[in-house]
C-alpha cells in the first residue's frame, strides 16, 4: 500500500505505519510527534485529495 501510494506520487513521509500497544504511551507520543513533524515539513497535501469535482 505504502509502496504503491509513493509510486503514484504521494510524498514519502506522508503515510506512516506503526504498531503501538496500549501500554506504550511514550512510544505513542514519540510516533505522533514524528508523524506531525514530518507531515508539517511536507506542507499541505494537494495531490490525490478530492476537492470539488472537476467536471463540465
Amino acid at each position: 500500500m505504502k509502496g504503491l501510494l509513493e509510486h503514484v506520487g504521494v510524498e514519502p513521509g506522508r503515510l506512516h505505519f506503526s504498531w503501538i500497544s496500549s501500554a506504550e504511551a511514550t512510544k505513542f507520543v514519540d510516533v505522533a510527534n514524528t508523524v506531525a513533524k514530518e507531515v508539517k515539513a511536507l506542507g499541505p497535501a494537494r495531490y490525490f485529495i478530492k476537492k470539488r469535482a472537476e467536471v463540465a
Binding site: 500500500m1 504503491l4 503514484v8 490525490f48 478530492k50 469535482a53 467536471v55
Partner: peptide, 18 residues
C-alpha cells in the same frame, strides 16, 4: 465519486490495482 473527476479516476485505478 462517479464523475470524470481526475482524483476519483485515480482512486479507482489505484484501488483496483491494489
Amino acid at each position: 465519486g462517479k464523475s470524470s473527476d481526475p482524483t476519483d479516476t485515480l482512486t479507482f485505478h489505484f484501488l483496483r490495482a491494489y
